[in-house]
Simulated assay, not measured.
Amino acid sequence: VADLVVLEADSLDGVLSILESEADIDLVLLDLHMPGNHGLAGLAAIRAQHPGVAVVVVSANDDPRVVRRALDHGAAGYLPKSSGLDELRDAIRAVLACEQWLPATLRSAVARTESSSSDADLAARLASLSPQQFRVLTFVAQGLLNKQIADRLDVQERTVKAHLSAIF
C-alpha cells in the first residue's frame, strides 16, 4: 500500500496524543497492557474520543471472556500476540473493510460467551460522553481535584463541574 503510514506510541497518552494531532488515522492496534492502559480503559478512551477510528486489541490473553468484553467495549477486532503475519494482515484488511475480526481459533468460543449486560451498559454510557467529558472522567479516575483538572484542560473550574454534572 503506497499511502500507508505507520505511527508508534509507547503509552496510552502517546496514542491519544497522536490521534489528536493526526486526523486521518483509520486503525489503531492497541496493546491491552501498554503503559497507561488499565485493562479496557484505553479502548474506552479511544472509542469515546475518536469514535471513527477502528481499534484492534492486541493481547497475550486469549480468554474468550476477555475477548467478548473487548468487543462489547467497541473493539473492531482482537488479535492474540501469538498470531502470525498472515493473521495480522487478515485482521487489518477485514477491519479496514468495516468487518469485525477474530482469529478462527477464537470465533466459536467467543460466540458462545455471553455479553455481560453491565459491560454493554457501561460501554454505551461511555460512548455517550463527549470527548471533553471523557477526559474529565479520566482525570477524576486518576484522583485529580477539580482545580487540577481545570488547569490540565486549560478551562475554568466551573466548566469541570458542569462536565461532572453531565457525567453523573
Results as ranks from 00 to 15, higher is better:
residue 110 V to S: 13
residue 150 A to P: 02
residue 47 R to Q: 07
residue 65 R to Q: 14
residue 95 V to Y: 03
residue 145 L to I: 06
residue 9 A to N: 09
residue 45 A to G: 14
residue 133 Q to D: 14
residue 49 Q to P: 12
residue 143 G to T: 13
residue 64 P to M: 10
residue 110 V to M: 13
residue 143 G to K: 14
residue 82 S to R: 15
residue 30 L to R: 04
residue 87 E to N: 12
residue 127 A to Q: 09
residue 56 V to G: 06
residue 8 E to F: 02
residue 56 V to P: 01
residue 57 V to F: 00
residue 61 N to D: 15
residue 133 Q to K: 07
residue 15 V to G: 02
residue 52 G to M: 13
residue 53 V to M: 03
residue 40 L to Q: 08
residue 117 S to M: 11
residue 27 L to W: 08
residue 16 L to F: 05
residue 85 L to P: 09
residue 6 V to L: 15
residue 34 M to K: 02
residue 86 D to I: 13
residue 142 Q to V: 08
residue 60 A to R: 05
residue 106 L to V: 08
residue 77 G to E: 05
residue 125 R to C: 06
residue 49 Q to K: 14
residue 167 I to K: 06
residue 90 D to Q: 15
residue 75 A to R: 01
residue 100 Q to T: 15
residue 15 V to A: 09
residue 86 D to G: 06
residue 119 D to G: 03
residue 166 A to G: 08
residue 103 P to E: 10
residue 109 A to P: 00
residue 157 E to D: 10
residue 19 L to V: 05
residue 161 K to F: 04
residue 157 E to V: 15
residue 113 T to V: 10
residue 20 E to L: 14
residue 35 P to Y: 06
residue 66 V to P: 06
residue 52 G to Y: 12
residue 146 N to L: 03
residue 124 A to S: 14
residue 150 A to D: 01
residue 22 E to S: 08
residue 124 A to R: 12
residue 51 P to H: 07
residue 108 S to E: 15
residue 136 V to F: 06
residue 4 L to M: 14
residue 79 L to Y: 00
residue 90 D to A: 15
residue 168 F to R: 12
residue 47 R to I: 03
residue 168 F to I: 11
residue 108 S to Y: 02
residue 59 S to I: 01
residue 107 R to Y: 05
residue 106 L to E: 04
residue 59 S to K: 01
residue 79 L to C: 04
residue 36 G to F: 00
residue 51 P to A: 12
residue 109 A to I: 00
residue 26 D to Y: 01
residue 48 A to T: 12
residue 33 H to Y: 03
residue 117 S to Q: 13
residue 56 V to F: 02
residue 95 V to W: 04
residue 88 L to H: 02
residue 108 S to A: 15
residue 18 I to D: 02
residue 156 Q to Y: 07
